[in-house]
């Protein structure tokens, strides 16, 4: 298998026409050809890895796929009882979707506003520093967010936010009983904080790449600074905003440790945001090491496969929208 990929690669390496290519190959030192081949072989690794992911996870999940078929996606059962094992992913899928989408709904406007502030309002000399400060949020490890969430955020939500929300908006089912000490709302808030820097970074890149002449034209026509931002900068940066938000969505869907620590880990579907619940990722993190049976493990691997395919799709879309995003956050 390795040999065939190498051969394929060699044909890809050279784009010159066949006769010239033959001549060139003859004249090139054998060491160079070996070097190019090995470098090319390494370049095949990332695509092969993605393929392996799908194969391996599908293989591991197969017992569950064969047993439950599509019921796995719509069933809310999670029954490790050895007499009649039954597993369904619906509560976890809903938990993942609700937490991620609501977090994005909070983080997107704030993130774009922060990016606009750094890009268009602050003096240029401060830009790098302010950006760095926001990006610190992205470097804090997930577990540390979790620790902070358990001991600072969750008590604050319980003692201050929840009473206010339930008093003013308690007639809505989302803000009704039960009040669990760790709950969906904590997870949403912590996800909001965690994806914010990603939205800011990508939006900032998009806005910095809008030509300065657009801004000058708007100001020259008598626009105020806000009108300049809204009419000249935002429309050109829109694809960056969208790409950043989709990237952030991918991040939120797969975020594990912090969510696991604050969401309460209850297997149930509840309308209330104050109820403890679970996501796909937090279920895997909590239960994988203690899986009581092979079918249970296979069901968890099927959850992983689902999450993998969803995040793969989300990230593909985002990357195709934002072609030029530097990863790693190097400023």
């Amino acid at each position: 298998m390795v040999m065939t990929t190498l051969d394929l690669d060699e044909t890809n390496l050279d784009t010159t026409s066949p006769p010239r290519r033959a001549a060139k190959l003859r004249s090139r030192p054998i060491g160079d050809r070996a070097f190019d081949l090995s470098i090319g072989a390494c370049a095949v690794v990332p695509p092969v890895l993605i393929l392996l992911f799908v194969i391996v996870l599908a293989y591991g999940a197969w017992p569950a796929i064969a047993e439950f078929r599509w019921h796995f996606l719509v069933s809310a059962a999670w029954e490790p009882n050895p007499d009649k094992e039954e597993y369904g992913a619906l509560p976890f899928i809903l938990g993942t979707l609700i937490s991620s989408i609501l977090a994005l709904a909070l983080a997107a406007p704030i993130g774009i506003s922060v990016a606009s502030f750094i890009s268009e309002v602050v003096p240029p000399s401060l830009r790098g520093l302010l950006r760095f400060v926001i990006e610190i949020l992205a470097t804090i490890p997930s577990v540390v967010y979790g620790l902070w969430g358990v001991f600072v955020l969750a008590p604050w939500v319980m003692n201050h936010l929840a009473p206010v929300l339930s008093k003013s908006l308690g007639f809505l089912p989302f803000f009704s009983e039960p009040f669990d000490p760790r709950n969906m709302l904590c997870a949403i808030l912590i996800l909001t904080i965690m994806v914010l820097p990603m939205i800011v970074s990508v939006s900032l890149d998009a806005m910095r790449s809008v030509p300065i002449s657009y801004r000058e034209a708007a100001l020259g026509l008598g626009a105020t600074r806000w009108e300049m931002i809204r009419l000249a900068v935002w429309p050109s940066a829109r694809s960056g905003f969208i790409g950043g938000c989709i990237l952030a969505l991918g991040r939120a869907l797969g975020e594990t440790m912090a969510v696991t620590m604050v969401i309460g880990n209850e297997h149930r579907i509840s309308q209330s945001l104050f109820a403890a619940s679970d996501t796909v990722a937090s279920t895997i993190a909590n239960q994988f090491a203690e899986a009581p049976s092979d079918l249970f493990t296979a069901s968890l691997i099927e959850l992983a496969l689902l999450l993998f395919l969803i995040t793969l799709g989300v990230n593909l879309i985002a990357r195709l929208i934002v072609r030029r995003v530097a990863i790693g956050g190097a400023d």
């Binding site: 992911f53 991918g250 797969g254 594990t256 895997i284 968890l300 992983a304 793969l312 990230n315 990863i327």
Partner: peptide, 29 residues
């Protein structure tokens, strides 16, 4: 090359794969 574009795209996509799934993958293999 075409492979370079594909590899770059998939590297970026790989950086978005949830870490927990990498754990499950390594566990399985």
């Amino acid at each position: 090359t075409r492979l370079a574009h594909l590899t770059r795209l998939l590297l970026d996509v790989t950086s978005g794969i949830p870490a927990i799934i990498v754990g499950v993958f390594i566990y399985t293999v």
